[in-house]
Amino acid sequence: MTNPQEMTRATRQKRPVFLRRGPMENIATALIAAGFLMLFQPFLLVLYTYSLAMLLTGTVMFIIVSKFPE
Rank of each mutant, 00 (worst) to 15 (best):
R15E: 11
R15D: 08
R15P: 05
P16K: 09
P16R: 15
P16Q: 14
P16T: 13
V17R: 11
V17C: 06
V17S: 05
V17Q: 09
V17K: 09
F18A: 14
F18T: 13
F18V: 12
L19C: 10
L19F: 14
R20A: 10
R20M: 07
R20S: 04
R20D: 12
R20T: 03
R21N: 08
R21I: 02
R21F: 13
R21K: 15
R21Q: 14
R21W: 05
G22S: 15
G22W: 13
G22R: 08
G22E: 09
P23V: 00
P23T: 01
P23G: 02
M24L: 12
M24N: 09
M24S: 08
E25Y: 05
E25W: 12
N26Y: 10
N26C: 15
N26W: 13
N26D: 06
N26V: 14
N26T: 10
N26M: 13
I27H: 08
A28V: 02
A28E: 00
A28R: 10
T29N: 15
T29H: 08
T29L: 12
A30F: 06
A30H: 02
A30R: 02
A30K: 05
L31V: 06
L31P: 02
L31Y: 13
L31C: 14
L31K: 13
I32H: 05
I32R: 12
I32V: 07
I32W: 04
I32S: 07
A33E: 03
A33Y: 05
A33L: 07
A33H: 01
A33C: 12
A33M: 05
A34G: 07
A34F: 12
G35C: 02
F36H: 09
F36Y: 09
F36Q: 07
F36G: 08
L37N: 06
L37A: 10
L37T: 02
L37C: 07
M38N: 06
M38H: 05
M38P: 02
M38Y: 07
L39T: 04
L39F: 05
L39G: 06
F40Y: 12
F40S: 04
F40N: 08
Q41L: 02
Q41F: 07
Q41A: 01
Q41I: 00
Q41N: 06
Q41T: 03
Q41Y: 06
F43Y: 15
F43L: 11
F43C: 03
L44T: 08
L44R: 10
L44Q: 14
L45A: 10
L45S: 03
L45G: 06
L45Q: 08
V46D: 11
V46C: 01
V46E: 11
L47E: 01
L47W: 13
L47D: 01
Y48H: 14
Y48R: 12
T49H: 11
T49N: 01
T49C: 05
Y50F: 07
Y50R: 00
Y50W: 15
S51R: 02
S51D: 05
